[in-house]
């Protein structure tokens, strides 16, 4: 178990919006070990969201190799990637991204359902997770009936549903006020300790990044700094 959870080699990513070619990532080499809490920082347009997409297997690099938990994922097809995402990655997004037509509990159960898992213990786990994030009385509420902070709690519970080894969070507190943001961050960190996942966080919030054990800073598609620090 001493393979790194993520290993990136010479990653580039270019897009062509029709008129000219844009190089978003221009050669990134990166290794993330198990149990790390990494914050990726950078100004808007620095390529951090693109990098997160590649780490998550949501997108494929133009050139370069990505290993996730020992598996080469940079050349996999759409469906194989979906399988890996379901198994190994939990997501937390800035704008929650809950399915509006499902209740809180159903949203949490969804990743397991999609993987074809069934059984009463799943429901038990989903309920327990919702209780952990403080939504004891709101299991049957639909997303529109929840506040932003509550929706993000549901998203947290969903992210941990299948005990993924890697948790990716994209500006998880970006849409929340500072009190709610702090609560979400605390929940995220405590859940992460409890479940023992590797946490990769994309943010441009310095305060948030300061909680991490490692801060990687991007500018114009290249890594400009990579500092390891003691956990807070």
């Amino acid at each position: 178990m001493n393979t790194p959870i993520l290993a990136l080699q010479a990653i580039t990513k270019s897009i062509d919006p029709g008129t000219h070619r844009v190089d978003i990532l221009r050669g990134i080499d990166l290794t993330i070990e198990r149990g790390e809490f990494v914050a990726i920082m950078g100004a808007s347009g620095s390529g951090k969201s693109t990098l997160l997409g590649l780490l998550a297997g949501l997108d494929t690099p133009t050139t370069g190799l990505i290993q996730l938990d020992g598996d080469e994922i940079s050349r996999l097809g759409e469906d194989a990637l979906a399988g890996i995402r379901g198994r190994k990655i939990g997501f937390v997004f800035q704008s929650y991204q809950l399915i509006p037509t499902l209740t809180a509990e159903e949203n949490v159960l969804l990743p397991a359902e999609l993987a074809g898992e069934t059984g009463a213990e799943l429901t038990t786990r989903a309920k327990a997770l919702l209780d952990t994030v403080g939504l004891q009385n709101r299991h049957d509420h639909y997303p529109v009936q929840l506040s932003g902070g509550e929706q993000q709690r549901v998203a947290l519970a969903r992210a941990f549903m299948r005990k993924p080894p890697l948790l990716l969070a994209d500006e998880p507190t970006g849409n929340l006020d500072s009190v709610n943001g702090r609560q979400i961050l605390d929940l995220l960190l405590s859940l992460n300790r409890q479940e023992g996942a590797t946490l990769v966080l994309v943010t441009h919030d310095r305060e948030l990044a300061d909680c991490a054990t490692r801060i990687i800073t991007l500018r114009d598609g290249v890594v400009v700094s990579d500092e390891k620090r003691a956990a807070q």
Binding site: E78, R85, F91, I99
Partner: peptide, 16 residues
Amino acid sequence: LDTIAILKCLGARSSQ
């Protein structure tokens, strides 16, 4: 589109 993208993030295959 958003729902579809979320489902894919959560591990849903296109066929599902």
